[in-house]
């Protein structure tokens, strides 16, 4: 079973040289720490920056330079700054190659719910609805099962949706899965030490799994 950093590490292997990537808050942010050597990527922050650099050194924080998580950051050689309309323009026009974001639930037909729990304080969707509606390539980083052991990979989402039929790949603490165009999860890889049977038990949505599913290679 993977921890959060393990999930991030596995997702980082999906990033190809030359990609422009938008990373959501939470586990997706950690992916930046595991981008392999020699792979050149440009990180987009939807508040208006391409080429997001690391956190500044202590004492060098600039209140005018933050990421979409409102953290102080830096720019890099080749960075560019733009307004919010252009930022979502490039997302809508599919100039961003890969979007990685978290989810509370994903369904077997690729629906995602990640912004609202009815009855609890609603903070808002931020840019998530724009990203999932437009991105051509979305990877969801999420927990496969909740603390009560209940599956979050479902036949249908129970929470209010963020987007419909948009998710194609999910990486969890247990597995890497594709979502098939005709519906259903297809098990591609198991986390180290996790059995196919356990993944089957932990997936409420339709799951297609061969008997011989390879274990993830993380390094």
């Amino acid at each position: 079973m993977l921890d959060k950093n393990g999930i991030a590490k596995r997702i980082a292997k999906e990033i190809k040289d030359g990609y422009y990537v938008n990373l959501g808050i939470g586990i997706p942010t950690l992916v930046a720490n595991y981008i392999p050597e020699g792979i050149n990527v440009v990180l987009q922050s939807e508040n208006g920056l391409l080429g997001m650099g690391p956190f500044p050194f202590e004492g060098e924080e600039d209140p005018d330079l933050i990421n979409a998580g409102k953290q102080t950051i830096t720019t890099l050689a080749g960075s560019s700054i733009f307004d919010s309309a252009m930022s979502f323009g490039m997302i809508r026009a599919q100039k961003i190659d890969l979007t990685i974001l978290g989810a509370m639930e994903v369904s077997e037909n690729g629906d995602i719910a990640n912004w609202k729990i009815p009855g609890k304080m609603v903070k808002g969707m931020g840019g998530a609805m724009d990203l999932v509606a437009s991105a051509k390539n979305i990877i969801v980083a999420m927990q496969h099962i909740n603390k009560a052991g209940e599956s979050k990979l479902l036949p249908n989402c129970t929470l209010p949706l963020t987007g419909v039929k948009c998710i194609k790949k999910v990486v969890t603490e247990l597995a890497v899965l594709d979502i098939l165009p005709e519906g259903g999860f297809r098990l591609l890889e198991r986390a180290p030490g996790v059995s196919v049977d356990f993944i089957k038990q932990s997936t409420l949505g339709k799951l297609y799994a061969d008997d011989n599913v390879p274990e993830m290679i993380l390094d």
Binding site: S84, F88, R92, G127, D130, A133, S134
Partner: peptide
Amino acid sequence: PQGTLATRCMAAGYGMPAIFTPAG
């Protein structure tokens, strides 16, 4: 949605009454 918010501002500034977006 954040992109809808930004683009509805942009539309006003460009003199366009409405926009079409897949968000939501």
